[in-house]
């Protein structure tokens, strides 16, 4: 089983910004216990969705040639809780990307309301720096396909992203 906390991308501009949607559903098991009678999406999982949105933006920007790992939540503020039926809209933008790491800003909105904001720091690790292989190439491509990244993605000149051939 994989840990998927975004459903699809709506916008994706290489090395710049991305918008992803997460539809919150009562079918998600954790909702049944968090909390009984009051199902709320834990904000720790909202952070995970933010990190997947921002992390893929980073990984694409560095050609997927390092392992992008959420190293630190530098700041996070939440204004209210997400409930079943809500659509979370994560908007990630690049503050800084360097070889060793990246600093990203991400917001989460529901409708017109700002639900949360965070600054996330990602480490870019080489094989051998303590992180196992995170994805096999074909598995990663399948995930990117599900997320519609090649349907909506553009490079900085506005040209559509080309689906890589990792076979």
């Amino acid at each position: 089983m994989r840990w998927f906390w975004i459903d699809r991308f709506e916008e994706f501009v290489r090395g710049s910004r991305a918008v992803a949607i997460k539809n919150v559903s009562l079918a998600e098991e954790h909702m049944h216990d968090h909390f009984p009678g009051l199902p709320l999406m834990p904000n720790s999982l909202v952070v995970e969705g933010m990190a997947q949105t921002a992390g893929l933006l980073v990984a694409d920007a560095i050609d997927f040639n390092r392992r992008v790992v959420l190293a630190k939540v530098a700041a996070a503020t939440f204004h209210f809780d997400a409930q079943p039926g809500d659509s979370l809209r994560f908007e990630a933008s690049v503050m800084d990307i360097k070889a060793a790491g990246s600093l990203m800003k991400v917001s989460s909105t529901i409708g017109d309301n700002l639900q949360g904001e965070a600054e996330l720091f990602f480490a870019h690790l080489e094989p051998g720096e303590g992180v196992p292989t995170l994805f096999e190439p074909d598995e990663l491509l399948t995930w990117l396909d599900h997320l519609k990244i090649f349907d909506v993605g553009k490079d900085q000149e506005g040209k559509p992203l080309v689906r890589p051939d990792w076979s």
Binding site: D96, A100, G101
Partner: peptide
Amino acid sequence: SIDFLDIVFRLEKAFSIKIPR
């Protein structure tokens, strides 16, 4: 340890300097 990398990023940006690892 990870904070030092974060701090290096912020100092590089704030002062337009380069801090080698």
